[in-house]
Write a protein that binds this DNA or RNA. Structure first.
Lengths: 206, 206
DNA sequence: TTATATACAAACAAGAATGTATGTATATAA
DNA sequence: TTATATACATACATTCTTGTTTGTATATAA
């Protein structure tokens, strides 16, 4: 039977997005067909084509649903002058992301899709540039925090905030990739936050 | 015309592997058809099916061609007692990998395929476990080097070799991912070795 | 109250990709 | 010298997907 009100239609749209996330996760983006997604969403391909032009548009919808909130949160926890010292602020910010991954299924699934269930070619290759831009932005935020740490004489050694920020960002990128791949949780998921703490302590003057 | 000798056949096999690497790189693994690969290799699908059971087998052939030599080299440069101090040994070992990526087209292409042109589902998901195992192995090697560094009192701070090794490995994982994504070279490729040097200096007692 | 746009479902047509089966020329072993 | 296995090329049948088109029930605006 046909959905009726605008609210119903919006609900259908969300069902399709959620269904697509599940299907992408288990079958990979390429092997997922609109029929798979429709079935999972308990609608027909007609509904899918009504709400989205094609699979790529669904993909982007999934990305936006999760990534936009994340960037905001990351921004806040790093930029806002908190009552914590800057190094602890960085530590908490990274740990917060790990907590998010653990608690938020949609975010976890989306990260997994973006990292190991998607091929960045053709329509998707533009996403790579977005990712790089995003990284620059995050590194910039971390750098600001390290600058404050430097001003407050919290840092061990004589490394520039930029060096430290790049190193931290690369560490965290690696950690996220491993976190996602380590679906058993044995190698990285359980100790992710310890690794972060340890990473930050490396820079802390004792 | 039909290839004749065994040497010719082996040559055809290699042509197919090389062709597949190129095709995978530009079209992604999923969207690459055996017809694409055959055309690129200037043979027909008949030849491809003669040498390989299917696309997955070609994928694994590409992986083995590059990854096996790499592991050996990484092993050597980290395990062998060189005349360098252990920290420099780690640094050189990581830099060596970057040099390899810059110089060896096949390795560069293969890394790019494995990281951003492949979906790890179904037949490919087993590769994830291999990657994790590989990472454990590399982390173990790095840890040994850090242990020697500790014995020689080269380390700043009071961090365990395991902590340091995990941190270094995650840093390097992140770096490789960024290196691959940064096809312009602007953000990471040009300064990759500086980042490594900086990372190692962070641990060095001055 | 009626016309129209909305929100889908269902049917259709076309192309693409895969695996297999068959054909064949040549090297090689007997 | 001949039989056979090798190393492919070619042809075929089948399945999957996709995009589009058509149909239709219902909400909503006029």
């Amino acid at each position: 039977m046909v959905r009726k009100t605008k609210e119903d239609a919006e609900l259908t749209r969300k069902r399709i997005i959620n269904a697509a996330r599940e299907v992408f996760l288990t079958r990979g983006v390429s092997r997922s067909t609109l029929e798979h997604i429709a079935t999972q969403a308990e609608v027909t391909r007609g509904a899918v084509y009504w709400h989205f032009k094609n699979k790529t548009e669904i993909f982007h919808a999934i990305r936006e649903q999760v990534l936009l909130p994340l960037i905001d949160r990351m921004d806040d926890s790093l930029t806002l002058e908190g009552n914590e010292d800057p190094l602890t602020q960085i530590e908490y910010s990274l740990c917060q992301t790990i907590d998010d991954l653990n608690e938020n299924i949609e975010m976890r699934q989306t990260y997994e899709i973006m990292m190991i269930k998607c091929e960045y070619v053709d329509e998707f290759s533009a996403v790579l540039q977005q990712i790089l831009d995003n990284c620059s932005s995050i590194t910039g935020k971390i750098k600001l925090a390290y600058e404050r740490a430097q001003t407050q004489n919290l840092l061990a050694g004589s490394h520039t905030p930029l060096e430290l920020a790049l190193d931290t960002h690369l560490f965290f990128s690696g950690l996220l990739h491993m976190w996602v791949k380590d679906s058993d949780g044995i190698r990285f998921r359980y100790q992710a936050k310890d690794l972060i703490k340890s990473h930050i302590n490396l820079r802390r003057k004792q």
